[in-house]
Each structure stands twice: as structure tokens, then as C-alpha cells.
Design a protein around this nucleic acid. Structure first.
Lengths: 127, 127
DNA sequence: CCCTATAGTTACTTTAAGTTACCATTGTTT
DNA sequence: AAACAATGGTAACTTAAAGTAACTATAGGG
């Protein structure tokens, strides 16, 4: 079995313009967006609550990442016209299904991070 | 079901030092490493052959990515002492199993990229 | 003796990620 | 009344990562 991500016998296309799969994955598998999706699995959360849960994320990075996730349709942004402002973020149906393969990947990483770490130590020792 | 990626009710750790899963994924899901793993699914390949297959990758980025994959134990680097030099890269057993969840993810991206693109168009039109 | 091929490396530039300070609005505290 | 806190951001800046272009050593071929 092989991925159909523009992989032919002779070439693989890495550019987002030439490969829609890369175009999707580049936004999905990056650091903050992935963590935000996982945080929203428990249900809707507002901006400041997300910032508290995801340690060390700055307001700017949270904003940037949320906008990207919203643009791609993974999350929905609901603004309540109150003061101080209240904004709630929710996973869309597509956002929910996206977490399924991501969680698989996390599972693989959990099962293998010990071996990976020992590989690193060996590699670094040999240099 | 939820990922155990240092996700508790109250906090998610994004730093590689605090989260071994992030430490693994940050190297695995990035652009070039992922494409290299896929390219090696067909069998061993040498440096220049990989560069030809993965369009637009520069020699430097190929070197950097291959080193990282080798360090983490996904690929094996075999140098043949010939002139001109010959270096062959092979997927390790672990590298092979890593592609399984990655291919799942690619499958999801294939099934959803149309919807994602229409979400983007809608989002951009509204601004 | 210049050209090709290989598998890189070095120095540089551009882009993305991350940090710090600031904004407007309202209610509460001093 | 003035200052402070909380909200969900934005603007300007710095640092780190990604990407580019030119260079290296070695042997064989024309």
C-alpha cells in the first residue's frame, strides 16, 4: 500500500500548489494547530481557556493558529457580543474526523519514542 | 478516545522537552522527512536518485532531512567507498511502521481536501 | 585539461515562528 | 475618581528555521 500523495514511480511533488495533500497536511500536522484540535476534543472552549490549557502558547500564535484552523474548516468561531468579549471555538464535524488519524499517529509516537531516543543517543555518540 | 500526548484535563505540553510525543512528531510530520520516507517505500535509493524523485528539494535540505531521519532511526545510511561516492538510504523496520499512520493521514487528506478548499474560499470571500 | 558525475558543505537570504508591548471596553476595587 | 483586572485580540520586533547558490574532492572520459 502506498500513499497517493502525488507519488508516482518517478516523482513526488512537495509544493502545496502541486500537491493538495501536502497543502492540507502542512497546516494540519504543525505544532500548535494539532494541539488545539486535541484540546477541543473535550468540547467548546474560549480563547483564554485554550491559552491556559496549552502551556507556553502566546496570544499571537494562538490567534494565528485558530485563524488557520477556522479558514480550513476544522473549527468554528462563535463571537458573543459581550463586554469583556467572549469567543468560543468548537470542532466542526471535519475537525473531529481529522483527529482520528492524528491520534493514530500520536499512538505510534507513544509506542516508539523510547526506541527513537535510544537511536538518537547512539547516533550522537558516534559523531 | 483521546491522545495521551501529555494531555490532561487542564494542560497540554507543547515543548519537546516536556512532551516526548511532540518531540517525535515534530521531526516526523514535517515536509521533507515525510516525503523521503514515502520515497523509500519502494526500496533503497541513493542520494541523487532521491533528489531526482522529490521535485524541488535542494541538496542541502535533502542532506539535513536525511540526517535527521537517520538520527531518529527511521532510515539507514550505507556508504560504499567508491569514486564517485555511492550512498544508499534504506527504511529501517521502524521507519516502515511509521509510514502506516502517515499513510492513513494522507488518505484522510485525500478524502477531505475538496471540502477544505471550499472552506478556504468561503472564509477568504467573507473578509 | 576541461567536462561529467557523486554526495555533500559553506555562506548567504528569505520566510516562519515566537516575544513583548499595546489597544478598547466594562465592572470592580481603593 | 483613579487605578486595576479581564477579555480577545493586533503591531512591531527578534530569533530560528527553511531555502538558495556557489563551492569542494575525486576519478574517468573525450
Amino acid at each position: 500500500m502506498k500513499p497517493q500523495q502525488n507519488v508516482t514511480k518517478n516523482s513526488i511533488f512537495p509544493d502545496n500548489e502541486n500537491c493538495s495533500v501536502r497543502d492540507v497536511l502542512s497546516k494540519l500536522t504543525s505544532k500548535w494547530p494539532m494541539l488545539i484540535l486535541f484540546a477541543l476534543l473535550d468540547g467548546p472552549e474560549r480563547f483564554s481557556s485554550l491559552q491556559r490549557r496549552i502551556e507556553n502558547i502566546s496570544r499571537r500564535m494562538l490567534t494565528v493558529s485558530l485563524r488557520q484552523l477556522e479558514r480550513d474548516g476544522y473549527i468554528h468561531r462563535q463571537v458573543y457580543p459581550e463586554v469583556p468579549p467572549r469567543v468560543e471555538y468548537t470542532l466542526t464535524k471535519m475537525g473531529n474526523t481529522a483527529t482520528i488519524p492524528l491520534i493514530e499517529l500520536v499512538g505510534w509516537a507513544e509506542r516508539n519514542h523510547n526506541e527513537i531516543r535510544s537511536c538518537r543517543e547512539k547516533f550522537d555518540a558516534d559523531k
